[in-house]
Simulated assay, not measured.
Amino acid sequence: MESADKIPESPLTRNKQNLCEVCGLEFSKRVYLKIHLQKHEGEKEYVCDICKSKCADQSSLKEHKKTHAKVFTCELCGYVCSANSKLTRHLRTHSGERPYSCDVCKSTFANSSDVKVHMVVHSDAKPFSCDYCDYKFALNSSLKRHLRTHTGQKPYSCNVCGYACSVSAGLKRHMLTHTREKPHHCHICGSEFSERFRLKKHLEMHANEKPFPSGLLEFSNQIL
């Protein structure tokens, strides 16, 4: 019969210092806990009740929640977000900046994700069909906008005057009548405009000037 000192030690014990925060098991030694944690590697059981992001353990979740405590505010309209990257994207709605472009048609976009969505229009696939007419679309979002021409739905409304429209871009243009913002600037003479198409019309005036303003054609193509 083996003596008691030769009986292998069980890794499991009631030891709060070596507690697995994932499943609640307790271990006699730290090394056993580390080996055990490898089983949980890649598991994400802890869910943020604010944004529903998942974390591997309780301590990671606590660190994640600290990101929600950080507040970034737009000085132009008061928009509030939890990350500086989100604020940067939001500011482009005021400045009109569109730093991402399509390699096929040179259309420009405010966000890189918009370029990926846009690339679908260059394919032949149009899987989204209108139930009211024969129109077909490459994007489901395009179909939804089109359907409003049949239903008359206007889901976007102004919280200042009650004006309603069928597309979000229409509401953004309308809001400029309240804020008096003019985010589109002429790089030649500095004139400011509330809408991109007005800037394009203005640039056509410069196109008739002699000598022809340097770089105008390239700039005009970028705002199409």
Results as ranks from 00 to 15, higher is better:
His122Ile: 03
Ser123Ile: 00
Asp124His: 04
Lys126Asn: 07
Pro127Ser: 10
Phe128Ile: 01
Phe128Cys: 00
Phe128Val: 00
Ser129Tyr: 00
Cys130Pro: 00
Cys130Lys: 01
Asp131Glu: 15
Asp131Ile: 05
Tyr132Glu: 11
Cys133Ile: 10
Cys133Ala: 14
Asp134Pro: 00
Tyr135Met: 14
Tyr135Ala: 06
Lys136Phe: 02
Lys136Glu: 14
Phe137Glu: 13
Ala138Gln: 05
Ala138Lys: 03
Leu139Thr: 00
Asn140Glu: 15
Ser141Ile: 10
Ser141Pro: 00
Ser141Gln: 14
Ser141His: 08
Ser142Ile: 00
Leu143Phe: 03
Leu143Trp: 02
Leu143Met: 09
Lys144Val: 10
Arg145Gly: 05
His146Ile: 05
Leu147Glu: 01
Arg148Leu: 08
Arg148Trp: 05
Thr149Cys: 14
Thr149Asp: 14
Thr149Pro: 11
Thr151Ala: 13
Thr151Pro: 01
Gly152Lys: 05
Gly152Trp: 04
Gln153His: 07
Lys154Ser: 07
Pro155Asp: 09
Pro155His: 08
Tyr156Lys: 10
Tyr156Val: 03
Ser157Lys: 09
Ser157Met: 07
Asn159Leu: 14
Val160Ala: 08
Val160Gly: 11
Cys161Gln: 13
Tyr163Ala: 10
Tyr163Pro: 01
Tyr163Glu: 12
Ala164Cys: 15
Ala164Leu: 04
Ala164Ser: 15
Ala164Glu: 15
Ala164Gly: 05
Ala164Asn: 11
Cys165Lys: 06
Cys165Leu: 11
Val167Phe: 05
Ser168Gly: 12
Ser168Glu: 10
Ser168Thr: 10
Ala169Asp: 12
Ala169Phe: 04
